[in-house]
Write a protein that binds this DNA or RNA. Structure first.
Length: 211
DNA sequence: AACGGGATGGTT
DNA sequence: ACCATCCCGTTG
């Protein structure tokens, strides 16, 4: 009886992207999230432009957590789109957004943002001054924006605590979105399911993964 | 209860 | 290339 799992169409902030955005093909959502704004009001407001994502597909994707078994950990992935799937790994966290229709088991991992608000807060949380490294990498992003396990199963379309907004892009220049193999994934490596802003310095991975 | 493997990230 | 660190799913 988790109230988080209920859909609340009447209470969403105008700014938050609605469920119809997330309830689409996972690759399309991963690609379209590039350039959008990720906002967190957990312990103070932080905001960043999404510059890197990865798609984890509902079928024939052995790297997707939901692929093998439906367990308590992956339960939220089988619910409606627009909910957060936050899971721990190596004593850190990764932030995902559930996609498509319920029962499929798929999501998009947000791997990096370019900080645009709450930079000093991010610096304090990360213990760093180097802006480039504040929210580059999925677990660094979570630490910078204070996203943790308590946000698992949060409805992001409510526009409360954590949500995604329409962005005007990184700057006035047109951006190029490129794709590559997913980082750290050892199976299903034939598919190019990682999307990133070409040449953006806030994208994670070695140099050849950022150009 | 015990075990092994990560959608990591920082260091060598 | 190595490994600290810890959660989770599986196996016994």
């Amino acid at each position: 009886m988790s109230s988080l799992r209920e859909e609340n169409p009447g209470f969403q902030k105008p700014d938050a992207l609605d469920r119809s955005f997330f309830a689409r093909d996972t690759v399309a959502v991963a690609r379209d999230l590039i350039g959008k704004l990720l906002v967190s009001e957990a312990g103070g407001r932080t905001k960043g432009v999404i510059v890197e994502t990865e798609a984890y597909l509902p079928s024939r994707d052995s790297a997707c957590h939901a692929a093998k078994h439906r367990t308590s950990r992956t339960e939220v992935m089988f619910g409606p789109a627009g909910f957060a799937y936050v899971y721990p790994i190596h004593a850190k966290y990764c932030f995902n957004i559930v996609t498509e229709v319920a029962e499929r088991g798929c999501a998009v991992l947000v791997r990096a943002v370019e900080p645009v608000e709450g930079v000093s807060l991010m610096k304090r949380r990360r213990g760093l001054d180097d802006e480039r490294r504040l929210a580059t990498g999925p677990s660094c992003l979570c630490q910078a924006m204070r996203i943790d396990r308590s946000m698992n199963e949060l409805d992001l379309t409510l526009g409360s605590l954590v949500w995604v907004e329409e962005g005007l892009g990184l700057n006035t220049e047109p951006i190029t979105i490129k794709n590559s193999k997913r980082i750290g994934v050892t199976s299903a490596t034939n598919r190019r399911l990682r999307f990133y802003v070409a040449g953006n310095r806030f994208v994670s991975g070695p140099a050849r993964f950022r150009t």
